[in-house]
Design a protein around this nucleic acid. Structure first.
Lengths: 341, 341
DNA sequence: TGAAAGGACCGTAACGGTTCAGAACCAATA
DNA sequence: TATTGGTTCTGAACCGTTACGGTCCTTTCA
């Protein structure tokens, strides 16, 4: 029976035809995929854990790029891609247990997420993405810290010393306000923590007291958040010469807010982002471009590559500093050098 | 054993603790989801068939919106969403057979797609989206024909009689060129067929010989295709006063091409789209807005609603004609009225 | 002609859970 | 003490498939 469907060489064409005929006549709908999976111990799918509110994943251009890359890798391998529902509100880990998959990809969830813990307990290969290196599972990511350090160096070189920052959420709880040094240090989102620490390092080296730099956090990730974060920072210190955002989406919002206040970018204020999304490119945003699609594809490849003996592996993809039209020396330029060391 | 995990009320706390303890000690990783699915006959996931090259799905704003809506419905119900790999090149239907799901959503695939046929043979509920009503399975969609008819009426009212059209692909084979009436009539993409037929009806009623209207087809769906399609139409008949595109993405490309030729929109030429995507809105595009997110959500709801006795159901969502800044009376306006009936 | 080899076909045992019937146990009541 | 009722626990059947090994039949070659 099974052979008739999957192994035509194991039986004569005549018998095969007869089997298939009567199967049809009896209304047999073909082999059941679940039973097959149980027997062969292959689900033919990989799970993707996003944890975020799903709408986030489909609204954030970087997340979409990642998803596309991952989907491409899966398509190449002929495996399905299962989006595991992981509502961050109810801590319902059951969905992770219920997922019939051959492996997991975990994308940008907080360190302390119970869903992540549940995934790590499952006896299947896992690739974490934009997460700290756990040492036990594969990882793919970029050097967020180094890339942001480089961007900061660029701004320092231009002469900026008095800056403000808008960042994405640092933990699972909502905090739409300024970030304390403690919170910054203990941030559960690896990516945000490292970007901020890259900034802190560069500006500290340049003699800036990082603890005095206003850092506004926003829970939701959209341009409106970027705008309101920028507003909060500018209200606190209207003298800042540069507004550094930890994502392009936030930066685009920040630019809107700058415009609303009559500040011209980059003449009156410098604005920078992170990611290298299309809309940012069109706006000429100074940013760090990261290969989001490649990141997804690499995660998929890593997971689907059967070569077990080399695990765990860690892949760092290259980023590129894009100097656009939104960064320039501070207004007044050289006169303000005395802010420096 | 099973009870210890899932039915704590069926046994004493003491035994439960002992069972779980020894399970942990023996390295038992928790109940196997596949075996559970086999026994309970619930996979806890719905399959999504896209057929398109997957990158298409993640680049097309309308498709992303649909995906988001569907994902939201799934999240609400706590079910997973399985992206079924369906490479249009190799007719590999196995992936459909291998998918362990409780139902399928089929989104915008050609009528004659073998993957669609394979889905319909599976004994699970199915919802087709942007497809002809098959009568046997649930359907959700919009009135493409009527919406486009209405848009055409708007243009006819403005005085346009000499027009050109750029549309998305009509069948599985690549045809980056003009569309013959035959091909138009036999189009395998329900959505495109109906939009074109809505146009044909309206303009025929206005006395235009539809068979003479240049209709350029493009296989790939992006702004570059919109631009090249517009170029082809404008080369064929530089006198057209309106360029009707069957999607916003194509329309945005067409506007770029118009600009490249020194044609101002809408003064020199009217351009219209279809979908109501964000970028189109920002450009002030005249278009038909369709609720893509709602469409995805409706598809999910339909599929996950256990109420079997009312199947098959058919849902038509409302569309809205958006009159933007890209449509105006033809240059010369009233003088050209003699084109009319 | 007989033995060996090979191909076609068939029966059965897992895979790892869930479910359900019934056994075992305990306490309360006639 | 026997009966009843209730709870806790145990064992077996089943979900539908694939893998494996065995039987049977045909062919080939000594």
């Amino acid at each position: 029976m099974s052979n008739a469907y999957n192994r035509p060489d194991q039986l004569s064409p005549e018998l095969r035809r007869r089997v298939l005929d009567t199967a049809r006549r009896l209304g047999y709908p073909g082999p059941d995929p679940v039973a097959r999976s149980l027997r062969t111990r292959k689900a033919g799918a990989v799970g993707l854990l996003l944890t975020e509110n799903l709408s986030y994943a489909f609204r954030d251009p970087a997340a979409i790029g990642f998803l596309e890359g991952l989907a491409l890798a899966c398509e190449d391998a002929g495996t399905g891609l299962l989006l595991v529902p992981a509502n961050p509100e109810r801590e319902d880990v059951a969905s992770v247990h219920r997922a019939g998959v051959d492996g997991f990809v975990v994308y940008s969830v907080p360190d302390d997420d119970p869903h992540l813990a549940a995934v790590l307990e499952r006896p299947v290969p896992t690739v974490v993405c934009d997460q700290p290196d756990l040492g036990t599972v594969d990882r793919v990511g970029i050097d967020d810290r180094g890339a942001m350090y480089e961007l900061a160096k660029h701004l320092i070189g231009l002469g900026h010393r008095r800056i403000g920052v808008v960042c994405m959420r640092l933990a699972r709880d909502r905090n739409d306000g300024f970030v304390t040094p403690d919170r910054q240090h203990a941030a559960h989102f690896h990516v945000q923590r490292n970007r901020l620490s890259g900034l802190a390092e560069a500006f500290s080296e340049a003699g800036v007291d990082w603890s005095q730099v206003p850092v506004a956090e926003r829970f939701d990730h959209n341009t409106a958040s970027g705008a309101s974060g920028a507003a909060q920072v500018l209200d606190r210190d209207p003298q800042i010469t540069a507004l550094i955002c930890t994502s392009d989406v936030l930066a685009l919002g920040a630019m809107t807010e700058a415009g609303r206040r009559g500040l011209r970018v980059p003449h009156d204020i410098t604005v920078t982002g992170f990611d290298g999304i299309r809309a940012g490119e069109e706006a000429g945003l100074t940013t760090v471009r990261q290969p989001v699609l490649e990141k997804g594809r690499a995660a998929g490849k890593l997971l689907l590559d059967a070569n077990e003996r080399t695990r765990p592996r860690s892949v760092n993809l290259a980023t590129e500093l894009i100097i656009g039209k939104t960064s320039a020396p501070p207004r007044g330029g050289a006169e303000e050098r005395w802010f420096g060391p």
